[in-house]
């Protein structure tokens, strides 16, 4: 019984291609409990009824960007302990540091290969 069998992940990205790439990679790691959505608001709502262990979110999204989502997660009692990985095209110091302040667990710069994603996840939750 490995961690990957139990880990529940929420993928948030406004671009369906990115969602596809991430879920495809997670699938290749054997992680089956993956949900995805194209915006932060839906993600928050969904997590109320179906909690997850880890959120993997894009930074640059309309309406609610990845860090605003993180902020909301950290302020709600039900989700404040959830793991959070930010995926970003530009790892600007300002963004990363603000993320760190908000309690971001890790980040990953685009483009990435599945192995990068795996390492990034394992650094947060442990060996898959």
């Amino acid at each position: 019984m490995a961690l990957r069998d139990q880990l529940r992940i929420m993928v948030v990205d406004d671009m369906s291609t990115s969602r596809g790439l991430i879920t495809q990679a997670l699938d290749s790691f054997g992680i089956r409990n993956v949900a995805s959505t194209d915006n932060g608001a839906t993600a928050l709502k969904a997590m109320e009824t179906a909690p997850v262990h880890l959120v993997i979110s894009d930074y640059n999204m309309p309406e609610m960007d990845g860090l605003k989502l993180l902020q909301s997660l950290r302020t709600a009692p039900k989700t404040k302990g959830v793991g959070f990985i930010l995926i970003t095209g530009r790892a600007e110091r300002q963004i990363i540091e603000y993320g760190k302040k908000l309690g971001m667990n890790n980040f990953l710069k685009k483009p990435f290969d599945p192995n990068d994603l795996r390492k990034c996840i394992e650094a947060v939750v442990g060996r898959l």
């Binding site: 302990g81 790892a91 110091r93 667990n105 980040f107 939750v125």
Partner: peptide, 15 residues
């Protein structure tokens, strides 16, 4: 200037 992954200390969650 971009932050490289090495400069960031990942924070584990309690799994």
């Amino acid at each position: 200037e971009e932050v490289s992954a090495d400069d960031f200390e990942p924070m584990g969650v309690s799994i």
